[in-house]
């Protein structure tokens, strides 16, 4: 345990069983068997109320609908009945649904590889040790800083930087004599939103990967270096395979975050009229639930998004042949 053990504990413990705590701290049955339940009780109660119950409630609502009898006036004329899978059919065939799913798919294809690629590159550069200490520290703090900026504020800052009247990017283009592209036009909005997510997420992932790199004893590289291996070879052949578990986990977490994109487009909306109320699936859920008061359709769409997220993240973990987390027992 040299530098950066706590972060490495957090992040690469999940998939790096090699650094587990030795069996010395093995468990022995406690005498009073009620104790662990008492310690777990607050967590389990809150988990049931605020995670499990909402999930089941969403599932229940997605199978219900309101039936209107007579003229639909009066309290008794509207009753909730079973709807079978009709909400799902409605949700899937909604003309706004497929475009929003495709949009988020494209968005994920831009954001996740770019963000993790940059995070890995920056972590490797920081770890390369050829850089001056002061520059490396400055870069590390600067790149991590956006993690402290909420997505709403980040979208607000970038939103203004995209506005043709404010944007320094426009000035830059005009200085060279080219007409500047409108970053908030319909062709470019997706990229504009993706940039905000990349800006906000790269630093955190960089720190995760960097900490995993620092936990590796340098003696591992020394012999390769003596054999004449270049920095690039060492990075490609030794360092990247070692941080692979961290990369897998950051990939899964980034994927989950990407599929729920909501705050960024919601904040950009007042600045960009190219963003519709159903721009992402989650925005559609919000519109259905609160603008149209159709909580049943909203519930069905939520369930679809949750299932899709699970399938994609577990499918990915299966594909790379890893369990989601290291379950020691």
């Amino acid at each position: 345990m040299e530098k950066g053990s706590a972060m490495s504990l957090i992040i690469d413990k999940p998939a790096a069983p090699a650094r587990q705590v030795p069996a010395k701290a093995a468990k022995r049955p406690a005498k009073r068997s009620g104790t662990p339940y008492a310690f777990l009780a607050p967590a389990m109660i809150l988990f049931t109320l605020f995670l499990a119950a909402p999930i089941f409630y969403a599932g229940y609502l997605s199978l219900r609908k309101v039936q209107v009898s007579g003229l639909g006036l009066g309290a008794k004329s509207r009753t909730e009945v079973w709807a079978g899978l009709s909400n799902y059919a409605r949700s899937l065939t909604d003309p706004d649904f497929l475009p929003s799913v495709l949009r988020v798919g494209a968005y994920g294809l831009i954001v996740v590889p770019t963000m993790l690629g940059l995070a890995l590159l920056m972590a490797l550069l920081l770890d390369a040790a050829r850089t001056r200490e002061s520059i490396s520290k400055f870069a590390r703090i600067s790149i991590f800083l956006p993690y402290a900026v909420p997505a709403v504020v980040a979208s607000l800052l970038w939103g203004f930087l995209y506005l043709p009247r404010v944007s320094p990017i426009t000035d830059l283009f005009e200085a060279v004599g080219i007409t500047a592209p409108n970053l908030l036009s319909s062709d470019l909005t997706l990229w504009a939103v993706a940039n905000i997510a990349i800006w906000g997420g790269t630093g955190f992932n960089m720190i995760v990967i960097y900490t995993a790199l620092r936990a590796v004893p340098t003696s591992l590289y020394e012999s390769a270096r003596i054999d004449g291996a270049s920095d690039f070879t060492i990075a490609w052949r030794i360092k990247i395979p070692i941080v692979m578990p961290s990369l897998v986990m950051t990939f899964v977490f980034s994927l989950i975050a990407t599929l729920q994109v909501f705050a960024e487009p919601m904040t950009l909306r007042p600045l960009a009229n190219t963003i519709s109320t159903t721009w992402t699936p989650l925005m559609k859920v919000y519109r259905d639930a609160f603008t149209r008061n159709d909580i049943y359709a909203a519930a069905a769409t939520s369930v679809i998004i949750a299932l899709a997220t699970f399938i994609v993240s577990f499918g990915f973990l299966k594909l790379v042949g890893r369990r989601a987390f290291n379950q020691e027992d």
Partner: peptide
């Protein structure tokens, strides 16, 4: 979870792990 042995321990732990992967904001409306 780390220091006691008790019935249902692995169930509780697996439920919590599944909770880590639940997309948080999907819970907001329910």
């Amino acid at each position: 979870l780390a220091k006691f042995e008790f019935r249902g321990k692995s169930f509780v732990f697996n439920v919590i792990l599944a909770g880590v992967l639940v997309p948080g904001v999907i819970l907001a409306i329910p």
